[in-house]
Simulated scan of single mutants.
Amino acid sequence: MSGFSAAERERIRAELIEAGRELFDRFGFERTRIKDVTEAVGIGTSTFYQFFDSKEALYVAVLRVERAALEREIESAVEVADGPREEVRALLRTMFREVRSNPLISRLIVDGELRALQDRLSAAEAASIDADARNAVDVVDAGDAGDAELPLASRWAAVEGFRFDDPELVDALFHALVFVARSRDAPIGGSDVAYERVEDALIDTIVAGLFAADE
C-alpha cells in the first residue's frame, strides 16, 4: 500500500468500515455499491481495493465490528445483574432490543449473514478482517468465524439449578428466541396487546423455565 503511512491506512480503513456500516444499515448489502462507500470516504474505487478485496469483505468486517459491539452491550448488561436469573433476563432484553433497533444485528443473528459471507472468503482475507476488527474495538470473547456467540452459555450451563447442561443447546436456544423480536410490528394473534407486554411475559416465562423452581 505505497503512498499511505500506517496512520493513514488505519484511518482510511476505519472510515471505510464506518461508511459501509451506515450504508449497509440503510440500504442492505445488495443495494450498497463500492462506489457509494468510496464516495462517502472521499477516495477512489481503486484505493478501496488496497484495503478490501471485495464488497463482501467489507461487509464481513462491518458485521464483525457489530458483533463485538453487541457482546460489549451484553457484557455491560449482565455484569450488573444480580445472579444467573437476572443475567439471563438482562441478556434477553439486550438482544431483543438490539435486533429490533439495529438492522445489522438482525441480519447478523437472525439471518446468519456473517457465517454465510465468511464461508466465501479466503482464509487469509478472513484472518485479516479478524485482526482489523480486534484492533478497531475491544472484542469480548468474539470466538471463531461464526455468528454472534453467547460466551455466557457455558457458565450458565454449569450453574446448579439451570435445566440444561449443554452450552451449544443453550446458545442455540437464545439465538432461536431472538426471532420473536421481529414480530414487534406485526399483529399478535389479532389482539391489541402491546408488544412490550408480550415481550416481558415471554422473558419471564423463559427465565422461569430455564431454572429449577428452588434456584
Rank of each mutant, 00 (worst) to 15 (best):
S2E: 02
R9A: 10
A19F: 14
R21C: 13
R21I: 05
E22P: 14
E22W: 08
L23M: 14
L23H: 11
L23G: 11
D25R: 14
R26T: 14
F27S: 15
G28P: 09
R31Q: 14
T32F: 05
R33G: 03
R33M: 05
D36S: 06
D36V: 03
D36I: 05
V37W: 13
V41S: 08
V41T: 04
V41C: 09
T47Y: 12
T47Q: 14
F48V: 04
Y49L: 00
Y49I: 00
Q50N: 15
Q50T: 14
F52V: 10
A57C: 06
L58R: 13
Y59P: 04
E66R: 08
R67T: 09
R67D: 14
R67N: 12
R67H: 12
A68N: 15
E73Y: 03
S76L: 09
V78A: 04
P84D: 09
R85Q: 08
E86L: 12
V88F: 04
R89V: 08
R89I: 11
R89M: 10
R93A: 10
M95W: 02
M95E: 06
E98C: 06
V99A: 05
R100G: 11
R100N: 09
N102T: 10
L104R: 07
R107C: 02
R107G: 06
D111G: 00
G112T: 00
G112R: 02
G112V: 01
A116S: 10
L117H: 07
S122T: 15
A123R: 07
A123Y: 08
A127T: 10
A131T: 13
A133I: 08
A136Q: 10
V137L: 13
V139P: 08
A142D: 04
D144A: 14
A145F: 12
G146Y: 01
A148W: 05
A148R: 05
E149S: 10
L150T: 02
L152E: 06
A153G: 00
E160F: 00
E160T: 05
G161Y: 00
D166F: 02
P167I: 03
D171T: 06
A172N: 07
L173K: 01
H175T: 04
V178I: 09
F179T: 10
F179D: 09
V180Y: 08
A181M: 01
D185V: 08
A186H: 15
A186S: 15
G189Y: 07
G189V: 09
V193N: 13
Y195M: 11
Y195F: 15
R197L: 15
R197T: 15
E199A: 15
L202V: 15
I203M: 11
D204M: 11
D204P: 08
T205S: 15
V207W: 04
L210H: 03
A213G: 09
E215I: 02
E215W: 01
E215Y: 06
E215F: 02
